[in-house]
């Protein structure tokens, strides 16, 4: 069984936010009204985090970091879920079961990365957006928690396709939308257990680190430090 992981090279990342947009479209993430967005209810599975500001205005050099779900190997969200609405798959992906979620938001309170987003209400989406809905991903109702799933629907499609073609799943068959769209190829994705894979090599690079690793969550999304 593979163990899917991701490595994001901050040296290559230009903070263009293509991954943020691609993720939002791919996963039918709700677009909220301007008021709600102002009140901190904007919904992103992939988010560009500003880690620190270097220099003084106007010569600011912000250090940013694209942050999706860390797909922890020891996820604190699963521990506290009262109804098994979130669970870890055998391939290490932390998945959500939207019809099971009761909306207690305990997982949100316990995620050290503040990754989970909640459907505070369900607003009517613009017509153009509704036409663009990805049919492979369910549209979440109001009152449930959601988060990045490593585009797990793509894995399902890829493995079914491989099965139909009577072959094993090849490394490049399944990649999440953010990986696919990144114009500079900053995000590598694949099987962490396969020591020859690009992602596995990158995760063992001297520049590699995990966000808040010290908490023991064992994140499967790792970063490569930017070189000054």
């Amino acid at each position: 069984m593979p163990k899917y992981g991701m490595v994001i090279d901050l040296n290559k990342c230009t903070s263009c936010q293509a991954c943020v947009t691609a993720c939002k479209v791919e996963n039918n993430v709700q677009i909220v009204s301007e008021d709600d967005a102002q009140n901190g209810r904007a919904m992103f599975w992939m988010k560009m985090l500003t880690m620190e500001f270097d220099g003084d205005y106007p010569n600011i050099k912000p250090k940013t970091l694209p942050r999706n779900c860390m797909q922890c190997d020891e996820p604190s969200c699963i521990k506290v879920c009262p109804v098994r609405a979130t669970y870890k798959r055998d391939d290490g992906i932390v998945a959500q079961i939207y019809p099971q979620c009761i909306g207690c938001r305990y997982c949100m309170a316990n995620c050290p990365y503040t990754v989970k987003v909640f459907n505070w209400d369900r607003e009517e989406q613009p017509k153009e957006i509704e036409k663009l809905y990805n049919p492979d991903v369910s549209v979440r109702p109001k009152g449930v928690v959601e988060k990045c799933t490593f585009c797990v629907h793509r894995l399902q499609i890829a493995s079914e396709k491989a099965k139909a073609e009577h072959r094993e799943l090849a490394p490049g068959d399944y990649v999440p939308a953010c990986v696919e769209v990144c114009p500079v190829g900053a995000i590598s994705f694949g099987d962490l257990d396969d020591r020859k894979s690009e992602v596995s090599k990158a995760s063992r690079d001297y520049r590699a680190f995990g966000l808040l690793e010290e908490l023991g969550t064992v994140p499967k999304v790792r970063y490569l430090n930017a070189i000054e």
Binding site: N39, G40, R41, A42, G103, F118, W120, D121, R122, K142
Partner: peptide, 10 residues
């Protein structure tokens, strides 16, 4: 929905 409250993220 819970949008009727003042809660948000985080």
């Amino acid at each position: 929905g819970l949008g009727a409250t003042g809660m948000n993220e985080p």
